[in-house]
């Protein structure tokens, strides 16, 4: 148990507060920047209090876009990012839960070989196989499409391993009881495995959604049209080399907006995390 001493709580809290400050201060600064006008930031007159242009900047960022750099408004980019993150997260979960189910519950020739092949792909993230993957995507006419953005990122060894470990904790008696109750492999999956995996799926969704949302290298290669840009790439493109032209207030607002969906996912799914930890139903 945790020791309880009168002054013992002070130091941990101090450390936590310092940690929070380190993380939160740049975010706050970013928010302040998004409420000022471009000239103030460019002149280095930015203070620590928010300026008056909150609604104006965010309206322009979301629905108009910057003048010279990215011709699309950030709302489109957010939509693209959202679609990409969602499809990647759901696709990864769907594929990996099915493949783990096959590896854990079915006896077929080369079962372990199949499992190890999935395992080995852990060592082959997109960055490593980027050229052949790009070539294939291009040959299949997947450039500048949602399919091209998401499909190559969907296959996932991590999630497969994660579900495999979880499936192995489901007692054998449940499978046997299902067999006696007349449930075949499909029914057992749908009626027992899937409901029992709910909290695991939720946890994985959070991780994978953020993974998808933060993708940078792959989208930058596969999308050339402005209307297929994701928000992470949008931020990059807004920052032009000639400093005076960069609309820093819009960049800051975009950065703030880019943070919102992952934060929302974490906040909304937190309840499930806790539920998954508290509930021991097996």
């Amino acid at each position: 148990m945790v020791e309880r001493r009168r002054f013992g709580d002070v130091i941990p809290h101090l450390i936590l507060l310092i940690g929070i400050a380190i993380v939160a201060f740049p975010v706050y600064l970013c928010f302040v920047g998004s409420t000022l006008d471009q000239a103030t930031i460019a002149n280095g007159q930015m203070g620590l209090t928010p300026g008056p242009l909150f609604f104006e900047t965010y309206w322009r960022t979301l629905f108009v876009g910057t003048s010279g750099t990215t011709r699309e408004p950030v709302a489109t980019m957010m939509f693209n990012s959202f679609v990409m993150a969602l499809v990647i997260a759901l696709g990864k979960i769907a594929i990996s839960i099915i493949s783990s189910y096959a590896v854990v519950y079915f006896k077929f020739p080369f079962r372990m070989a199949a499992f190890w092949m999935i395992f080995v792909t852990l060592m082959l993230p997109v960055e490593v196989r980027i050229y052949p993957t790009y070539k294939i995507a291009a040959d299949l006419n997947l450039l500048n499409s949602y399919a091209g953005l998401t499909l190559p990122l969907i296959a996932s060894a991590t999630a497969t391993l994660f579900f495999r470990q979880f499936f192995m904790t489901i007692p054998d008696e449940l499978i046997e009881a299902s067999k006696l109750d007349g449930a075949g492999p499909f029914r057992f999956f749908k009626d027992t495995v899937l409901p029992l995996s709910r909290t695991n799926i939720a946890a994985l969704f959070v991780i994978l959604f953020i993974y998808g949302w933060n993708q940078y290298l792959w989208p930058i290669l596969i999308t050339t049209h402005d209307d297929m840009q994701t928000i992470v790439i949008g931020i990059k493109k807004m920052i032009v080399t000639a400093d005076a032209l960069t609309e820093w207030n819009v960049v800051m607002a975009t950065a703030m907006l880019a943070m919102l969906p992952p934060v929302a996912v974490v906040v909304l799914m937190q309840r499930w995390f806790v539920k998954g930890l508290v509930e021991t139903e097996k």
């Binding site: 007692p171 008696e173 449940l174 046997e176 009881a177 027992t192 029992l196 139903e281 097996k282």
Partner: peptide, 13 residues
């Protein structure tokens, strides 16, 4: 036939 298991094997959900 119907079987009763040692750990009951009830569907927890």
């Amino acid at each position: 036939i119907a079987m009763v298991f040692q750990n009951y094997a009830l569907y927890p959900h």
